[in-house]
Design a protein around this nucleic acid. Sequence first.
RNA 1: UCCGGAGUGGCUCAAUGGUAGAGCGGGUGGCUGUUAACCACUAGGUUGUAGGUUCGAAUCCUAUCUCCGGAGCCA
Length: 431
Amino acid sequence: MPKYILAKYIPEYSGREITLKGWVYNIRKSGKIWFLIFRDGTEFVQCVVLKNEVSEAVFEMKSTLTQESSIAVTGVVQEAPRQETGYEILVKNIEVYHVAEEYPIALKEHGIEFLMDHRHLWLRSRGPYAVMKVRAELEQASRDFFNARDFTLVDSPMFTPNAAEGSTTLFETKYFDRKAYLTQSGQLYSEAAIMALNRTYCFGPCFRAEKSKTRRHLTEFWMVEPEMAFFDIHDDMDLAEEFVESLVKRVLGNCKRELQMLERDTAKLEGITRPFPRITYDEALEILHRKGFEVEWGEDFGAPHETAISEEFDKPVMIWRWPAATKAFYMKRDPEDERYVLGVDMIAPEGHGEIIGGSQREEDIDVLLRRIETEALSREDFEWFLDIRRYGSVPHAGFGLGLERTTGWMCGTRHIRECIPWPRTMVRLKP
RNA sequence: UCCGGAGUGGCUCAAUGGUAGAGCGGGUGGCUGUUAACCACUAGGUUGUAGGUUCGAAUCCUAUCUCCGGAGCCA
């Protein structure tokens, strides 16, 4: 018998005496019986304290233990069908590490500002706990997916010398006697890396200094970005679809308990199987016009448009073949019609927005040079990027998946600030 | 940056021009199967800030700060 066990394993010790180490989540007192809801970061377990089963000192802890006090509980694991886990602990002894001061977060409703100010404590609550577990599962599932398909992890730098896409606002920082910017994407570096390693992915934080105040935006977020040599836009979409399907499967398989805690309707996730609908921008525009939106050809879609399109499907929908003006300079033009680029966005169901943006990349140096010129980007900054097209250029493609948006979709979270441990937004830099 | 909304005990809210209340949390007591347990008692607020109108302002006006929701941009 180990010195102590993690709470998630108590079913394996049914009928035996074990010790748990963790924190008091809640206490419900009665006269000669009291209930201690225990948590240790692996599960929440009810512990029952009966007057005639423990010493008087332990029984009297009902009036000295406070919410979030740290303890070691020794007791017998017994079946309890009314518990979510099916088990509870009949307490024999409690040892106290620390009696917590009055805890700010009650087991009642709080406002989001208060909770985010106390994020360092809020993480202990059931909801954030479950979301963090799902997020971690998605990260691991992503790595497993690409590692199993001959991708090499090649992480990209956070400091960059220039504005990669020119359009979005970057955080500027001092870099000794120069300026540097925080990366908004690892893609350009991945394009170089695949010429060395064929298929790569990077997985790290990205930074956008845009003054976005919506439930879908953070200034610091995580993105997993695969990049593949010899892939065209269709191969790219095939992979994106297989990837997202695998993520849903992993979360459904490994995060049942977390989804239960979050009261997520898993039926909506169970239907997420290949193939996903693929429509072109023009087809999406028809849907919008049919639904009464006034969008001109060539305009990008806003959040209400995305939601309206996603409502037509019960799976993620891929919208591809976009008007060139709406997309970044590096996307490949459609050879059949120069007005379009071979880019794709994947929109998650239930209003969770765009979770993937990808494209086939422009491999022709002359076309790329023209676009750099048209968009008034600095050619000097992109010389290394152009080298990729000078030495054995090949068709290639890739995409980026936003981790927080995907986590939000899996968990049914309204706002993605709950899907990252320490959210950074326009108005929040603490804790 | 623009549009809309809100700031009242530790927290969540009520009080719409006339003596600032409730629930939760805290404290005290009660209860042997509770499920954000329950019951009783109790402490706790110069109503975001600065001006103004009024006999009288949480309430009306002006300014300002902060946050929330949405837009643009995007993952």
